[in-house]
Design a binder for these strands. Structure first.
Length: 823
RNA sequence: GGGCGAGUGGCGGAAUUGGCAGACGCGCUGGCUUCAGGUGCCAGUGAGGGCAACCUCGUGGGGGUUCAAGUCCCCCCUCGCCCACCA
């Protein structure tokens, strides 16, 4: 049994890694050709933030992403699979303060560590396209884009209440406030009034919504749903109410049909309007209330169970449809920055208005007829309009849509309102009071005002600040860098000051995928032809945490660049794959739980290939994977098993496969055919299962079939090596070499499928009696319905099941099924 | 409160249009190899019954459509995620 000793032979996982890394670095197989000789494919993965070394999450997303990129290479495409770093940001700045050094020190050291880890991890990146958003050569063009946006009126400055994170000492975009907390550090967000820069995303709201049609079916439904939700389009009307002693005030409503039921009027307590219209008599009460509201955080406001509060402002508004005088209140259940910050309150048809009316004992008039047994509460459903008529128009009896259009037409005719669309989406606040970001290329001049830094003076480079100089003080650390801030006005030459805020890092990441197409381009942010060649990216892989932040901003940037004539598409990412999280023991890995798994230790113990295989085989890529449920040891065992096959092939490389064992050849070709489809539909775990089946079949063929000398065995093992190269590149390379081939297996090409070998010459037909399985027959795929039925009826098990029964009906689906109904 | 998604062996998960439920793997059990452990190899492994051929039940629960339902329809339960005073 010396053969068995041979089978126990194993290869040294780690030594193999070192060996092949050197070979790959020499061959440089994954640099995009970019010469038009092959069809191009752009495989994009969300670039990492350089905090520390790679962790399990990176290992998972990169393993999945690389299956696609490597598959494309095998399919013969010219693949661009670039890597870079989103290298501006707070953690580096905080580390720099703690260590009394420059943020760049921490940042670039981590980048080197991560780059080294990616190389060890065997991801097929094109390293020649590497970029870092904190390099002046990169952020020069971030600044350039900002200026172009500003020229188009899409970047503007305004003084208004903003979200403020007291911990990070900076403002935040709406998208970065989650449940009233800072998305990054979890601190409770407060409000501040500041003059800040915004991108006018709202101008693109409708297009961001409409163009999602192109993404249907290619992006996860939930991401599209989240974006739709975030954009928050609602159709309704603007209606003008006259407020005594003040003038006309417009409200937004989605239910203009209920206008006759408006019995009071509410203004957001923190809106300017409230302070403007309040009477002197009511002012003290109002100001006391406003104080209360200001103290309450968003967290308090989030509780919908909270009783309604408010204060009468001493004035009345006139309902334009019936001339009724209704009282005006200030309340915090109306939001200052949604719609117009004021509403008409229709308690009979709105639950919030109902609660307020009950709390303040205000009248309630039903204008939509609820069902007979409807309880004493707001009726938000549909029914015929009632109590809704004036001398000129009557809605009575109309259903909701008809009543809406009728009253809108009447309002428009009177100049009292109009049909309109409102969005929940707000403009993107991009200023940050932090150091480690892209400087805003604007100079503030006492005589010229806001002056853009001329293009030829870009980039505005960050000064050399470190340590204590970076400590957050509520204003940007840049403001304290006197020499840097003080500058001659580019317009008049007089003394002026630079804008001392930096940009949100999401600005940096809104266009990096374009820069990859021509990373060294110096005449603009990107070479338009290179972008035409590669974009839109065919596949984007990354976490769902960016469902509305990065992905919405990138879509916005792309549309603006399209309008500028710089790109010829409106959506940047054709397809999106959101991988799940790696968790441990049912919970997210965290320091406080102490359930973190160290990637380095896993790689040391099981090797890169087994780790990658474990991630890919765990389940569908979108699902979370629980490390506690997985078996990297099992993966390693499989890889050794696959590798051993290559040692049992005794035929020569290039042997004529057509004479090989047909049964094994059929399994090989079927597997290769299915595996390609499974990769395309992102069912990587099933693809791995199919490779395992082929390995098992090949093992059997060697040990108890035609044997290792049969050319079909060679064909099978070569197919295993090529398919395995998508997941376990080192093992595949080692197998390929043992099979007598030159590196690299990554470019060997996907095996050609012989259609003739996909045709089965026997299929299993199922015979059911009353829908229950009673027999299986091996039949020809070309069998006739009559023959199949006859064979089924003749089966001894079927005969027994039919004993004493009369056959009523027979369903035949040749060649696979017969169902006999009897009774 | 609203929206979306999911519930399949001890576990992760397969089952493309309704047509063999449980592929593949982990774990477990028995055996071979071994001084021994591990590795490796062989066999078994949804539940219940039977010496066996086989039989009955079985995809969260209930109902329905169909010759046939994990898959389609209705109701309910549970879990997950997202949004949440958005007028």
């Amino acid at each position: 049994m010396s053969e068995q000793r041979d089978e126990r032979e194993a290869y040294d996982v780690v030594a193999t890694q070192d060996k092949w890394r050197k070979v790959w670095e020499e061959l440089n197989p994954f640099q995009a050709l970019d010469d038009g000789s092959k069809e191009r494919r752009y495989a994009l993965t969300m670039f990492p933030y350089p905090s520390g070394d790679l962790h399990m999450g990176h290992a998972e997303v990169m393993a999945l992403h690389d299956v696609i990129a490597r598959f494309w290479w095998q399919q013969g495409y010219d693949v661009m699979n670039p890597i870079g770093w989103d290298s501006f940001g707070l953690p580096a700045e905080n580390a720099a303060i703690k260590r009394d050094e420059h943020p760049a020190t921490y940042t670039y050291a981590n980048i080197e560590t991560q780059a080294e880890s990616f190389k060890r991890y065997g991801i097929s990146f094109d390293w020649s396209r590497r970029l870092h958003t904190s390099d002046p050569e990169y952020y020069r063009w971030t600044q350039w884009l900002f200026l172009r946006f500003r020229e188009r009126g899409l970047a503007y400055r305004k003084f208004s209440p903003v979200n403020w994170c007291p911990n990070d000492q900076t403002v935040l975009a709406n998208e970065q406030v989650v449940q009233g907390m800072c998305e990054r550090c979890g601190a409770e967000v407060t409000k501040r009034e500041l003059s800040q820069w915004y991108f006018k995303v709202t101008e693109y709201a409708q297009r961001l919504l409409d163009d999602m049609r192109q993404l249907e079916g290619k992006w996860p439904d939930r991401v599209l749903a989240m974006q739709r939700n975030w954009i928050g389009r609602s159709e309704g009307a603007h209606v003008v109410f006259e407020i005594e002693g003040h003038g006309p005030v417009t409200v937004f409503t989605t239910r203009p049909d209920t206008l006759f039921g408006a019995t009071f009027f509410v203004v957001a307590a923190d809106a300017k309007l409230a302070a403007e219209i309040v009477t002197d008599e009511q002012r003290p009460a109002f100001e006391a209330y406003l104080d209360e509201v200001r103290k309450a955080t968003d967290i308090d406001r989030l509780s919908t169970e909270r009783p309604k509060t408010g204060v009468f402002l001493g004035v009345h508004a006139t309902n334009p449809v019936n001339g009724e005088r209704i009282p005006v209140y200030a309340a915090d259940y109306v939001l200052a920055d949604y719609g117009t910050g004021a509403i008409m309150a229709v308690p009979a048809q709105d639950a919030r208005d109902w609660d307020f009316a009950k709390a303040f004992d205000l009248p309630i008039v039903r204008t939509v007829q609820p069902p007979a047994d409807f309880p004493d509460e707001a009726f938000t459903g549909s029914g015929p309009a009632i109590n809704s008529a004036n001398d000129e128009v009557s809605l009575n009896g109309m259903d909701v849509p008809e009543a809406k259009s009728t009253i809108i037409a009447w309002l428009e005719g009177k100049g009292l309102g109009n049909g309109t669309v409102n969005f929940r989406l707000r403009d993107w606040l991009l200023s940050r009071q932090r150091f480690w970001g892209c400087p805003i290329p604007i100079v503030h001049c006492p005589s010229c005002g806001e002056v853009p830094v001329p293009d030829e003076q870009l980039p505005v480079v960050l000064p050399d600040l470190r340590g204590a100089d970076l400590k957050p003080k509520g204003t940007s650390p840049l403001a304290a860098a006197e020499e840097w801030v003080t500058v001659d006005c580019p317009s008049c030459g007089g003394p002026a000051k630079r804008d001392s805020d930096t940009m949100d890092t999401f600005v940096d990441s809104s266009w990096y995928f374009l820069r990859y197409c021509s990373p060294d381009y110096t005449d603009g942010p990107f070479d338009e032809e290179a972008v035409r060649n590669w974009m839109p990216a065919h596949q984007y892989v990354g976490g769902v945490e960016h469902a509305i932040l990065h992905l919405l901003y990138s879509r916005f940037f792309t549309k603006v660049l399209h309008d500028m004539g710089m790109v010829d598409f409106v959506e940047p990412f054709t397809a999106l794959l959101n991988q799940g999280q790696v968790i441990n023991g049912g919970k997210a890995m965290s320091k406080s739980l102490g359930n973190g798994v160290d990637l380095g230790a896993v790689l040391d113990e099981f090797g890169v290939d087994a780790t990658r295989l474990t991630m890919v085989f765990a389940g569908p890529p979108e699902d979370d994977i629980d490390w506690a449920d997985l078996s990297p040891g099992g993966s390693l065992k499989f890889l050794q098993r696959a590798w051993r096959l290559s040692g049992d092939v005794t035929s020569e490389a290039g042997a004529d496969v057509s004479t090989g064992d047909v049964a094994l050849r059929k399994v090989t070709h079927k597997t290769v055919h299915e595996a390609a489809q499974l990769v395309e539909s992102h069912r990587f775990n099933v693809m791995v299962a199919k490779i395992m089946e082929l390995v098992n079949a090949t093992r059997k063929a060697i040990d108890s079939g035609p044997g290792g000398a049969d050319s079909a065995v060679r064909e099978a093992v070569e197919a295993v090596a090529i398919m395995l190269s998508l997941v376990a590149p080192y093992t595949a390379e080692e197998m390929w070499e043992r099979l007598g081939h030159q590196p690299t297996v990554a470019k060997a090409g996907w095996p050609a499928v012989d259609e003739a070998l996909l045709v089965e010459d026997e299929v299993t037909a199922i015979v059911q009696v009353q829908g229950k399985l009673r027999a299986k027959l091996q039949v020809s795929p070309a069998i006739s319905a009559e023959d199949l039925q006859a064979a089924a009826m003749a089966d001894e098990n079927v005969v027994r099941a039919l004993e004493g029964k009369t056959v009523r009906k027979v369903i035949v689906r040749e060649p696979s099924l017969v169902n006999i109904v009897a009774g």
